[in-house]
Design a protein around this nucleic acid. Sequence first.
RNA 1: CGGGGCGUAGCGCAGCCUGGAUAGCGCACCGGCCUUGGGAGCCGGGUGUCGGUGGUUCAAAUCCACUCGCCCCGACCA
Length: 568
Amino acid sequence: MRLSRAFVPTLRQVPADAEAVSHKLLVRAGFIRQLASGLYLFLPLGWRVMEKIHAIIRQEMQRIGAQEMFLTVLHPADLWQKTGRWYEIGDEMFRLKDRTGRQMCLGMTHEEVMAWLASREIKSYRDLPQIWYQIQTKLRDEARPKSGIMRTREFIMKDSYSFDMDEEGLERSYQLHIEAYNRIFTRCGLRYYQVESDPGMMGGATAHEFMAPSPAGEDDVAICDGCGYKANVELAKSIPEGLQPQQWEFEEVHTPDRRTVQEVSEFLGIEPKYFIKSLLYFTDSRPILVLIRGDQDLQERKLQRAVGGPVRAASRQEVEQTLGVEAGFIGPHEQQIELIADESLKEGVFVSGANRPHYHVKGLRPGVHFNPRWADLHVAKEGDRCIHCGSPLRIERVIEIGNIFKLGTKYSEPLKATFLDEQGRERLIIMGSYGIGPARVMAAAVEQCHDENGIIWPISIAPYEVMVLPLNMNHPETVETSESLYNRLLSEGFETIIDDRPERAGVKFKDADLIGIPLQVVVGEKALQEGHVEIKVRKTGERFRVSPEKVPERLRELRDNLMPPIKN
RNA sequence: CGGGGCGUAGCGCAGCCUGGAUAGCGCACCGGCCUUGGGAGCCGGGUGUCGGUGGUUCAAAUCCACUCGCCCCGACCA
């Protein structure tokens, strides 16, 4: 490709509405443009990166026997009504009617359609197992699109679905996907973790996420370097800092105008971890008082799982109406409503609200003064102990680049996707679903691989492998050498772009670094006089002077070194 | 959905508080000269519904109301 004729609109200035590094760099380097909130166009360079990622995904999916198909974006509503998601999902689903008034929606994901297909076409155990996938546009009316292409309303997703006869089959399909995903993300040059995740509304029991560490991410994971335990903080378990035994007798203490743990802690000279925070929540059916240690935070996801449905925090007024006491002085002692407590409160003697304005109680003992239901409810924090091996946990910010779910029969049942087994009995197909967001892979790569000058693409997903820079287009020998190098590299199979614009050297250097092609071949007058050109490795900044004839050989070597450990 | 911010040339911004003459700066862009190893220099060129609508006023980019769009924090995220 010739840059002089390519559409690569680089920007010297950072767009005002970009915050995330990947967003800024991808816009500046001419890879993407924003059409509207959460809607991005992929320009030629950006689309080449996406296609590289797609190609790697295709190769690895085929490797595990998955078959690609192409479904629709427009779905009839009744499929979603059958599985109930039509009603469960709120504004995030784009809904519309066709000209005859039939309710439709735009696909956010394709479990329904895939299960529908399976229900019609798979009849016998002989048809199983199957893994079907597609690389397709999905639409979600996100409450808050953000960080460039990291969270958009229209996006491409690789989604695959496995269909098995039984749990063992599902486990096999699940493991195949883990294998494929490890190869895909490694080949894309990412640092990533596989972590336990919350199956959430997808239904089913087991789920994992593939997470690329980056400060621009939206999730946090807890990681144990001791035993390798890794989990999304939405469900990560941890053992908080221990307590010293206390001999406090049960007593009421006057705490005028001290409401928060912080205030009462300072007032009484007792550390926050000896406090019980009482938080009033409402489930669909009832109020529930949630007890958390003073130095801990409630993980609402865990609470939702524990009570088996959505929860919401009570407002100040609701606290007074329900409990008859102002928030700040409520506690578990002599409480009438249902209690649920974090397990870190099982052992110890605590301070909490007295359910009487301006008073707290000290010497509160679980099992003696209150009897809650126990559950793991606290947020795992940096430095907490691993529940498996006791090592300290660390918390890291990550971008979710892939996820895998064991669905079971959540979709096959309502859509009647069944098969006849060897005994002629009708049984439900067991499903799994597996996603990858190629645009997030792209964004994560930029987040992980860049410097102050621009992007440094992993060579496996770079839009081009080599960029030839003729520094002075008015110098015939420079042009001649560059052109012949360009043609030679192309014929030897290098994906090459030449910056043949009549620009000054500085501009070419800046753009080359910004765009981030891994290998640069710099053709300058001075070096040419001595009979060589210069190869620059974008990632390390290394420069090698080589004679033009040796360029392909040297580049091949450098390319091999830059290539991630797994190749096709 | 709650909180905050922003909308003036292709991009980045000043002007607005305290209303007034032709709306300005840098970059980009177009023509010319010059230059060619890290976003050069000189000369000439403005390409604008000041997001929109309504109002106040002799007069609105500027004040008021409504509205649309975009970003950030939180909630949500199948």
